[in-house]
Design a protein around this nucleic acid. Structure first.
Lengths: 206, 206
DNA sequence: TAGATTGTTAATCGATTAACAATC
DNA sequence: TAGATTGTTAATCGATTAACAATC
């Protein structure tokens, strides 16, 4: 299969969750315009995305939900799933843990790290919290491939270096400081302040 | 000035914070390649963005930091600033409040809303928490123009409707459910699960 | 001067949308 | 059949990058 565009990958994740709600409602098929309206995008974009991953539907019934979920999962999941660590067990780290765990079976948060001794060797929602000094060791023994950075700005660079050194494969960075990682590590960054300032900019134009 | 591209607006927010750290270090000027390296983008993109907002530098010293901050602020801020509400005072809502307040003077979180009676009429980090039933009233009396949705998925649609009804101008939606708002309201959505699944996808390809 | 830098247009790349043939 | 739908190519739009003149 040809390389799937980045934006299509993002929508595949959304498609999968959207059709799950349809499936839960007892439906077995979905039309492109129905799936589109769940995401507030156009039907043609849905059809093009599904074309790109080689998923086909029928003129009478649209797309078969079970098939679609399987096809998307085949692309974005791994067989054994991946293990995730959250670095920084403040409100943001906790939000991620309580939000993610129990929902997706293929991605599991198996460790949290912090420098605050109050939190260490405790659990949050079933996830054990370790001291950051043990990061390298735990990443390796626990087979963790993805790290979520939810520490204060000043510590983000150092945490990223430690993750890279420990052999992490992907980083999701929520600190506003842009990180520098080798090309062997995939980096995704999200900046809450920028998002809010963007909303503020377009709000004043309204 | 011509319409500024969306991506440029996002970077302006980042430029401003990046040069603040330079300014704090006692510098008064910055070259495009220095600013670029702070964001891990190319110098030409910096220059093009600044060209688009009409900010000019000099060949000898680059861009004057104070001027640059003023120019960016002129574009993305409003004179009096804007007032923000967080709906849902769980971990995510708290993360936003503790992260934002005290940093940016022009955007202030002045209210939180929840349905949990434990939290109501209490403060979190100085922000009063109200019952969601009072949302319409408080949005109006407090002159709130921006709402951040940090409630569980099932409640997101209803909260959005209430915000729109109350006359909000912009919504930042952190629930994974895509919302439907009239064109008079600016909507920005961010889905943590999609971000993580994207990182997982590219991590397995590494 | 030579080298480094800004400012800007043109070219390229990536993503979305329009158009439409094919099918049931 | 007529109408609704899928699948796909071509066109368009938006964003980034290449190229380079001008300047100090």
């Amino acid at each position: 299969m040809a390389k799937i565009p980045e934006k299509t990958i993002e929508r595949l994740s959304k498609y999968r969750r959207a059709v799950l709600s349809y499936q839960a409602a007892g439906k077995h098929h979905i039309f492109s315009h129905q799936l589109a309206s769940l995401l507030h995008i156009t039907p043609v974009q849905v059809r093009r995305d599904l074309m790109l991953i080689g998923h086909t539907g029928t003129l009478r019934r649209g797309y078969e939900i079970k098939d679609l979920i399987d096809n998307i999962s085949e692309i974005i999941d791994t067989d054994k799933g991946q293990r995730v660590a959250v670095i920084g067990l403040g409100n943001l780290g906790k939000a991620f843990i309580s939000y993610l765990n129990g929902k997706r079976s293929k991605l599991t948060i198996v460790a949290a790290f912090d420098i605050n001794f109050d939190k260490i060797e405790r659990n949050f929602a079933g996830v054990p919290c370790y001291h950051i000094d043990n990061l390298n060791e735990i990443i390796k023994t626990e087979n963790i491939t993805i790290g979520i950075i939810a520490v204060p700005t000043e510590q983000a660079t150092e945490v990223a270096e430690k993750l890279v050194f420990a052999g992490i494969k992907g980083i999701l960075n929520y600190s506003p400081k842009s990180l520098n990682v080798p090309p062997s590590v995939f980096l995704e960054e999200y900046d809450m302040i920028t998002s809010l300032e963007k909303v503020a900019y377009y709000s004043k134009l309204q």
